[in-house]
């Protein structure tokens, strides 16, 4: 009874959010998983349980290997998006950290694109990346750089790399802010100690500062990575839903439009697992780090 008095009120206060989470997050995930195991392929509803058939079909029987194609697109997109944002973010943070005049101004300039929604920037980039003679291609042409003109996202092999450009543009500033915070969090004593030991600037960064940034880099990777895997709005506004740029999230939407609930649910669950593969180790890692503190 006494113990109950200690944690009872706390639990009572938490209970609304716990219940809401249980129903609207975990309950619905469970429901999606259930739908993905049934054969609800049209408006007629489900006829029964089919086990993992929908998942097997996605990988083996999908027309034109549509699902594998969407995974390939997602892979290219994610690699370019991650590498682009991490490199640019680190570079900008490094430059600002070295002490540039008007740091506040540049920080704002770099961070600002993040405030724009993917839909709004996507519409603009759709025009910029016009594969014919508008947008960037026209700019290149005007500067005598015609050889730089290209088909952007309509390229059948590397189009998704072009699709990642707007995303890189938008999120690099955010990664920069994370790294900048990381730089600022390194105690001055460490730098001084390194200087005392006669370390060159290169050695200082290579052996003292960058190792300290690992947790920040990991956070940035996780945040950008899970955004990339769920990418939907940017692609919808740049190219619309079509084969060329289809990623799993867009495929879910397309499957829903044709009332193929089971397929949509199966793709959603695969997407959830993909994100979990990235997030769960991170959660375990941070959990451990906190316990050891």
């Amino acid at each position: 009874m006494r113990r109950m008095r200690q944690w009872g009120p706390g639990l009572l206060l938490l209970s609304p959010s716990l219940i809401l989470l249980a129903v609207f997050v975990y309950g619905l995930i469970a429901w999606t998983a259930k739908v993905s195991l049934s054969d609800e392929h049209n408006a007629r509803g489900s006829k029964g349980f089919v086990g993992l058939q929908n998942y097997v079909d996605l990988f083996t029987k999908d027309i034109n290997d549509r699902f594998l194609h969407s995974l390939k697109n997602l892979l290219i997109f994610t690699v370019v998006f991650l590498v682009g944002t991490m490199l640019l973010g680190l570079l900008w943070a490094f430059l600002l950290e070295r002490g540039v005049k008007g740091e506040g101004f540049f920080r704002t300039v770099y961070l600002f694109p993040m405030a724009v929604s993917f839909v709004a920037s996507g519409v603009v980039w759709r025009w910029l990346m016009n594969p014919a003679d508008g947008g960037l291609n026209a700019v290149f042409d005007g500067f005598g750089l015609g050889f730089l003109q290209n088909t952007w996202w309509t390229n059948p092999d590397w189009g998704m790399a072009a699709m990642a450009l707007p995303a890189v543009w938008q999120l690099s500033g955010y990664v920069m802010a994370l790294f900048l915070a990381g730089f600022r969090g390194i105690p001055q004593e460490l730098r001084e100690a390194a200087a005392m030991d006669g370390a060159s600037t290169y050695r200082l960064y290579r052996n003292v500062i960058f190792p300290q940034l690992t947790p920040v880099a990991l956070s940035a990777l996780i945040i950008v990575g899970h955004m990339s895997m769920k990418m939907f709005d940017l692609i919808m506004s740049v190219s619309g839903a079509q084969w060329l740029t289809e990623v799993p999230a867009v495929y879910v939407w397309q499957a829903l439009l044709t009332s193929d609930y089971s397929k949509a649910a199966a793709i959603s669950i695969i997407l959830l697992l993909l994100v979990a593969v990235v997030i769960v180790p991170y959660l375990i890692y941070t959990n451990r780090a906190e316990k050891n503190r």
Partner: peptide
């Protein structure tokens, strides 16, 4: 054709356009 068929046909033509 039904909605599902229509979606599959659109996707097939989209793939054909590139390959």
């Amino acid at each position: 054709c039904s909605q599902g068929w229509q979606g599959a046909a659109n996707s097939a033509l989209g793939a054909y356009s590139t390959k």
